[in-house]
Design a protein around this nucleic acid. Structure first.
Lengths: 128, 128
DNA sequence: TCAACTTAGATGCACATGCATTGAATGTCT
DNA sequence: AGACATTCAATGCATGTGCATCTAAGTTGA
């Protein structure tokens, strides 16, 4: 049996599709919102979590290393999209909260994301 | 209808699976062969093309920018995996050829790749 | 209480990437 | 032939990333 070439084909497909969409998405987000795909992911999870979350929680949900998250938050803080706050119960921890501007940016970026996905995931067959 | 959340779910799945596999793959290739995932991709396409190809052709098949390819080839040349040669018919062009060491490295790295894919794509349902 | 260990997050560092530009070679049009 | 545009590949630059490390804070155990 041909398990190996099937695996490789699967991987190549996955890689291809990811690369295609990610490139468009990154470009669009960068161009329209000055935001990385990672930045948007962070903002998105943050909003999902009620616009306030421990950095630690976010790391678990994202495909980013701890240091990458730290810098993403720093970037976004500099842009006024989020704020960092001490955590009372554990002063090692950091609460990240989305500002009004952050929520607005998220909303706008989400529209951009959907637009890109519509154009570049359209040919995907939904899996049974 | 709920097209939008379906799209987003699809994208999140794609991103998740890609990230998981890519991370393992990158780590394994780096650790065992001192090679980037991109380096391996380049070497792989090169072997597919008969161990000799124009840089230009490679760019088309890969998910890399022209500059990234240029540097990947430079890296691999420094490691003795490939060689660059003038192209007679178009002296702007560059032929990239896999050396013996390059072919050996490809073969070894391919085994590593398959190992990772077996362990991390195993739960994928093959599509129709 | 004090020492050893663990955990949260920031940062120095090396490095891969994309964009824009450069320089050379080729093509095209008059 | 000569001027202008296009293409190939390399490179300066800015930036995002992971790894290893650091500091501060919390935890555990004697």
């Amino acid at each position: 049996m041909n398990t190996e070439s099937v695996l490789i084909d699967q991987w190549r497909s996955l890689l291809s599709e990811y690369s295609r969409v990610a490139q468009e998405l990154d470009r669009a987000l960068q161009h329209h919102h000055g935001m990385t795909m990672s930045d948007y992911e962070v903002l998105d999870r943050l909003v999902d979590a009620g616009c306030k979350a421990r950095a630690q929680e976010l790391v678990g949900d994202l495909h980013l290393s701890q240091s990458a998250l730290s810098r993403a938050v720093a970037r976004m803080e500099k842009c006024g999209l989020v704020e960092r706050a001490m955590c009372d119960t554990d002063r090692r921890g950091v609460f990240v909260t989305a500002t009004d501007a952050g929520r607005a940016a998220h909303s706008a970026a989400r529209a951009t994301q959907l637009d890109v996905l519509k154009r570049h995931l359209a040919d995907r067959v939904p899996q049974g």
